[in-house]
Design a protein around this nucleic acid. Structure first.
Length: 459
RNA sequence: GGUGCGGUGGCGGAGAGGCUACGCACCGGCCUGCAAAGCCGUGUACACCGGUUCGAAUCCGGUCCGCACCUCCA
């Protein structure tokens, strides 16, 4: 079965053919850790996590690297504001980030390199760029000369002239061209800094990804991921640096073969921004919704489409999840071992839709379609559907077997349910309804079925 | 101004020349002490204007509208 992915560099849906089928290599630009993660960070993490999960269905070995940016001006500003060392801030929020992402069933990347632990690699790459005459030193800054790279603009489809037209920035005195960007900048005494051939300073934003992807994956690697907004300037600059460090004017493909960009999460149709104050933090959402509900909401639209984040989307996902789990659990499962998932037509159809550029809405519709009318289907199909659903939910990261919350006392619930059933037999329906109401208050929903009363924890 | 993405039924959201997904909501029915779930059934679509075609939501041209990027951003 072929895997298709949309490649932003060629702007086409392409068949994914790894450089080395024995070792697929992916890099994703990770978070800058100075605050809680927002839902947009989560979308990128969930989508790339799914991409990796899907690739693992076909390829035995997939190496996934996603960095942590732990040195940056935003970090410096925030640590100064809080009067704490920057390291304390970044340690705190990288831990929080990983914890939150794991609540969303995002697997930790195989390697999660930190910028501050790769300063040497960055310095070496900058030296190489200077040697290749693609970078220059001016006023204690090391700058990349965008005019030195003839493929500059290939990814974002804009020429140097075009981007300067709309540019709202003045040309700083340390730049030769308006588009030139910082590789290394000086740090003031009280600011974090590292010794370098150009004095005590710190790296620019883009160089870390070039240095770390080279170190952890080697170039060229297969897929480079990130949010669409990173296309320009971040990814464009990464290409320029990484390729120029290999050899001046080497092709963008010498860095990464495919480029994978996820769309934005919007709020009321607009991008989240701190100034507007419409940031949705994962942390806050997790107080009200389960990680799976949030994850499903993020996967309910195709990854390249904009996703408008509303309360409705969460409520709907919550319902959908509940329905899927309930229906799934109603099927009496024999033994999955007796069935070959690779020959399960329900599962194959599901997998095909994910292999087609991660079409999650279609994949989800297939789960729903299979589960529909499942009670009327024959025993063999029921088993197959149960098996397919189990595998599908696992792949999507939506399966949770700790649905029954440990904070609740199962025996108490059972006791109340028994009491209610006694009341029902005695036709004391007032008492029966009262018990149901009480359970509802504890977020326990009950259903009377032919097999008896079953209960579900709502979250 | 430049670059890109998009406008699908009440809502969410796939599809991409003929088979008109899927979910939620609505409506009718079965079932039920009542619920819920389930089952059976019904309805409402492809921004607009032209063109190509036997046939267009899907292709081509134009128009309008929305969003993003060009400044830190997932």
């Amino acid at each position: 079965m072929r895997i298709l992915i949309f490649d932003s560099l060629s702007r086409k849906k392409q068949e994914f053919i790894p450089i080395d089928a024995n070792k697929v290599r992916i890099y994703a630009c990770g978070p800058t850790v100075y605050d809680y993660a927002h839902i947009g960070n989560a979308r990128m993490a969930v989508v790339t996590d799914l991409l990796v999960r899907v690739l693992k269905k076909k390829y035995k070995k997939v190496l996934f690297v996603s960095n942590i940016t732990d040195i940056d001006d935003k970090i410096i500003n925030e640590s100064e504001k809080l009067k704490i060392p920057f390291k304390e801030l970044t340690d705190k929020f990288s831990k929080i980030y990983n914890k939150e992402m794991s609540s969303l069933n995002v697997n930790t990347p195989d390697i999660q390199p930190k910028a501050t632990e790769h300063i040497d690699e960055m310095i070496l790459m900058i030296e190489k760029l200077i040697k290749n005459k693609c970078a220059y030193v001016m006023n204690n800054h090391v700058m990349f000369n965008v005019k030195s790279y003839k493929h500059y603009g290939t990814l974002s489809r804009r020429t140097l002239e075009e981007q300067l037209e709309g540019s709202r920035i003045e040309i700083a005195d340390y730049k030769k061209n308006a588009g030139d960007f910082i590789l290394w900048k000086p740090s003031k005494d009280q600011q974090p800094g590292w010794n370098s051939p150009w004095g005590r300073g710190r790296p620019g934003w883009h160089i870390e990804c070039s240095a770390m992807s080279k170190k952890c994956l080697d170039t060229p690697f297969d897929i480079h991921c990130g949010g669409v907004d990173l296309t320009f300037p971040h990814h464009e600059n990464e290409i320029a640096q990484s390729c120029s460090a290999i050899e001046p004017n080497s092709e963008p493909e010498h860095f990464s073969k495919y480029w994978f960009h996820n769309g934005f999460v919007t709020l009321n149709g607009e991008k989240m921004s701190k100034s507007v104050g419409n940031i949705q933090l994962v942390n806050d959402l997790l107080n009200k919704y389960s990680g799976e509900t949030i994850r499903l909401s993020l996967l309910s639209a195709h990854y390249r489409q904009p996703l408008n984040w509303t309360k409705d989307i969460l409520e709907q996902s919550k319902k959908t999840l509940l329905r899927i789990h309930k229906n799934y659990e109603k099927i009496k499962v024999n033994d999955f071992e007796a069935f070959d998932i690779k020959k399960n037509e329900f599962y194959i159809e599901f997998l095909e839709s994910l292999f087609d550029d991660l079409n999650t809405p279609r994949a989800l519709s297939i789960i729903g379609k299979n589960l529909n009318h499942v009670t009327t289907k024959n025993q063999e199909d029921k088993q197959k559907i149960a098996h397919a659903t189990f595998e599908a939910l696992n792949l999507l990261g939506l399966y949770s077997n700790n649905k029954r919350n440990i904070h609740f006392d199962d025996s108490l619930i059972e006791k109340l349910i028994n009491e209610r059933n006694v009341a029902r037999k005695l036709k004391n329906f007032a008492r029966a309804d009262e018990i149901r109401q009480n359970l509802k208050k504890k977020n326990i929903e009950i259903e009377d079925t032919k097999e008896g009363t079953v209960w579900t924890k709502l979250k």
